[in-house]
Design a protein around this nucleic acid. Sequence first.
DNA 1: CTTGACACCGTAGTGCGGTACGGGGTGCAT
DNA 2: ATGCACCCCGTACCGCACTACGGTGTCAAG
Lengths: 133, 133
Amino acid sequence: MTLTIGQVARQCGVGVETIRFYEREGLITQPSRPEFGFRKYPPDAVRWVRFIQRAKALGFSLREIKDLLSLRVDSATTCDAVKGRAEAKIADIEKKIVHLQEMKRALVKLTVACRGKRPTSECPILEALGDED
Amino acid sequence: MTLTIGQVARQCGVGVETIRFYEREGLITQPSRPEFGFRKYPPDAVRWVRFIQRAKALGFSLREIKDLLSLRVDSATTCDAVKGRAEAKIADIEKKIVHLQEMKRALVKLTVACRGKRPTSECPILEALGDED
DNA sequence: CTTGACACCGTAGTGCGGTACGGGGTGCAT
DNA sequence: ATGCACCCCGTACCGCACTACGGTGTCAAG
């Protein structure tokens, strides 16, 4: 069974125009289309679009998401390059996780301070800032 | 010792205009300023701006970052509300961490598949997509 | 007391990531 | 064969987060 663009869009909670936009930008592959008729999407298209939405919410740009997605496309040919890029992305992600954990720790500390009814004038949010780059 | 806007900007790797912009948007508090002279920043200003940069890279909008920062400002007055908002943010952050871990797992799997010289035609990146939301 | 680097302000322009619109075409249902 | 919902395309527009610009003011060093 194939899906129309509208069905994919509804299942992803985005607009039809967004999917056409992603197609123009090369984030999702052109769906099969019988000579200027409607686009026909495989059910997996929904997962691709959801991946894009999720990655965006995690601070990746569409350019980066495109890179991420392209890792699978040409993997057979230039395996070493793919591996390198994947490892770089893993490092990025690990850094993001560390920073999020720092922010979380700071916020937890804030709620604890709150419970204790102290006015938290010495701001705990500032402690979410390790000084290494 | 106080800093000029240019010194803060250089230490944060942003432009002077960016800091003025953050000030206009209420993300950083107005620095003390002797009656229409230059802005005088405390050294902590550098940390605030770096916090904003970092939070942006983690997928928070300036609106959200403003909320995050405001948690410290009026904490003495509406402690319960602050606690609630902080807890909501913690939940957001935990969700982000989970999604990042899923992406990382998928990428690690990709590099492993790569090592094994298999063409990874069954895309492991797609597995970064849990279907709950 | 001049000079040059930097700061001040407001407004306009940029790039990203969509979002809306208008004028059509398609396709199935009645 | 006539609706009607949905799709096609291109182009214009939008909000966010800056970034650049241009004309003026400040100030510390020489």
